[in-house]
Design a binder for these strands. Structure first.
Lengths: 188, 188
DNA sequence: TTGCAAACTTACTAATTAGTAAGTAAGTTT
DNA sequence: AAACTTACTTACTAATTAGTAAGTTTGCAA
């Protein structure tokens, strides 16, 4: 009885686990048990844990590229809101973002994973930098630093925001969003 | 041959490992092997890994209390710089802060550890909030939000800043510090 | 209908994991 | 000097880990 979407279910669950507990805190057994298949079925789709970890990151890269395309026609403020929204959903689901999850376990992960992750981080940073640069030029956002710097400030706010929400509660995160918008001059 | 400081060496190494790779990415074997003692010696000082993890967090709480006392007589700006400095050292040593390390692995950790960690997070946030509130009242810092919110913004900048520095390089972190100061109006 | 490939299961293995029980050597106290 | 404590080591164990080899079932194509 071949379930055609087992591969995708494994991939989704692996990402969930990485962003709930970290890469080294879950086992193939936990995945197979949760999905009601055998350990070897997971190895059939992803021969090693490193391959599984890499595919999780690669699919996140694809998802971010899709996000870019899908939001490209929106206004700058709507694009920023859509970006922030993805983190709000993370916060509500008690999930940290991949950037945080991978960077914290950095020296306990296969180098391949951290290298591919650098690509995703750059992708996000470049996108945010561009958004802020245009927004500043158009007088939509106000800040007195390089857009690269402001981009890092907002990304770190969001990445650690979902982390600290686990320790201090979700109100902390929504409060943080308000702060980001105030500093950007987009508070209504 | 009793080495009197074995306990402290274990504690220090455990904290290093948690902040390098995460709690679930190191073993008692790694600690004992690194320190040149036997696995059972680590269990002698810290019967379970949970106890070891708890002691790491408790010693970090004590360290932060000491930091508060030691810097209490400094100017607000010097206190802020001292606080930021601890993160700069982390960044140079490729270590993330405990708040980030614990919150990312949150659902893979013993509940005792996450509960004690909530105390440290509150301690840091209260301290920063107070510093910013006074600094704003005295006209030293400028920001248009509650000091609680600004405190969370700076803490998340620093916490995720050291994380993202692993993926993007240390210049990213020093750039971030400049941004924080610009937004606080303490750039010289 | 036979052949074949995809998607598994069964049944393992070797290594690593946290943890323990029992012993020992070197001080420290009485 | 005897009794005791501290700080270990030796020698394990049971569970969990990632990973594998050899089948089996199912659907599809020739």
């Amino acid at each position: 009885m071949a379930r055609l979407d087992t591969r995708q279910q494994i991939l989704d669950l692996a990402e969930d686990l990485i962003r709930s507990k970290g890469y080294n805190s879950f086992s193939y057994h936990e995945i197979s048990h949760t999905l009601g298949v055998k350990n070897a079925a997971v190895h059939y789709h992803f021969p090693t844990k490193e391959v599984l970890g890499l595919e999780v990151i690669r699919s996140a890269i694809q998802r971010f590229k899709d996000f870019k395309e899908e939001t490209a026609s929106l206004s700058l403020e709507e694009q920023l809101d859509a970006f922030i929204q993805t983190y709000s959903i993370n916060s509500e689901n008690d999930k940290v973002c991949l950037v945080g999850a991978i960077s914290v376990e950095f020296y306990g992960l296969p180098e391949n994973m951290t290298n591919v992750m650098k690509g995703l981080t750059r992708l996000i940073h470049d996108w945010a930098t561009n958004l802020l640069a245009i927004g500043k030029a158009e007088g939509m956002f106000t800040f007195d630093m390089k857009p690269e710097t402001k981009a890092i400030m907002i990304i770190t706010n969001l990445a650690a925001g979902v982390q600290i929400a686990r320790l201090m509660g979700n109100e902390t995160f929504s409060d943080l969003i308000k702060g980001i918008k105030i500093d950007l001059g987009v508070n209504q």
